[in-house]
Amino acid sequence: MSAIGLNHFLALGAVLFCLGTYGVLTRRNAIAVLLSLELMFNAVNLNLVAFARFMPNLDGVVLAVFVIAVAAAEATVGVALVLSIYRNFRHIDLDQVDTMKG
C-alpha cells in the first residue's frame, strides 16, 4: 500500500458526495432523502478537513465547524417539513407528494 495523500481523501469525498446525490435522486421516502443530504454535507466536510491538514491551514477546520452547524439547522427544518408532509398526506412518499399541475 502506498502512502496516503490528499488525493485519497478527496476521492473518498467525491464518492461520498456522489452516493449522496444518488440517494437524493432515487429515494422516494422523504427521510431517506434527508439522510442522503447529510452524506453530501459530510463529503464537503471531509474535503475541507483534508485540505486543512495538508495545506496546512486551520481555516478548513473552522469552515467545517460552520458547515456542521448549518447542517444541523438544515436537518431541523427538514424534519419539521417531513412531519408536516406526514400530517397532511399520512405518508412521506415524495413521488406521491405531487398535487400541483401547471
Binding site: 400530517r87 397532511n88 398526506f89 398535487t99
Partner: peptide
Amino acid sequence: RASAEAGM
C-alpha cells in the same frame, strides 16, 4: 397539502 408540498 399544497403548502406542505411546496415547502418540501
